[in-house]
């Protein structure tokens, strides 16, 4: 498993740069990931999405359905793509330190 230095610490990542050690996530890690995802500098709206995803993940061990993300942050998909050019799953979830979803998605 490759490693990357993010937020000043070494973290295991997968081939697409998703962190594999969610417990090492921090604001600084998020900001470094946001640089890779062209979502830097992170403004209030970035953090709103990332914090929502992070809280949901800690509670439910998975990302929320996209529909839920959109409704509960009050931002439509277009807005989320503006904030995170790779989109909610590959962009926003990556910055929030969530794993990449697999299956029929």
């Amino acid at each position: 498993m490759p490693k990357a230095t993010l937020g000043g610490i070494e973290i295991e990542i997968d081939e697409d740069g998703f962190i594999q050690e969610p417990e090492k996530w921090s604001k600084e890690v998020a900001e470094d990931l946001a640089k890779i995802e062209e979502a830097y500098p992170m403004g209030e709206d970035h953090w709103k999405v990332v914090n929502y995803l992070r809280d949901y993940y800690l509670k439910y061990e998975i990302a929320p359905p996209i529909r839920m993300l959109v409704k509960q942050t009050g931002m439509d998909l277009k807005k989320i793509y503006q904030l995170f050019p790779s989109g909610p799953a590959k962009g926003a979830c990556k910055v929030a330190g969530l794993p990449k979803p697999t299956g029929c998605v």
């Binding site: 839920m68 697999t102 299956g103």
Partner: peptide, 17 residues
């Protein structure tokens, strides 16, 4: 229980939504 890895309590939350 499923491919995506949705645990039961997340499934319930999703259904309520």
């Amino acid at each position: 229980g499923n491919h995506l890895g949705v645990p039961p309590h997340a499934m319930k939350e999703t259904f309520d939504f």
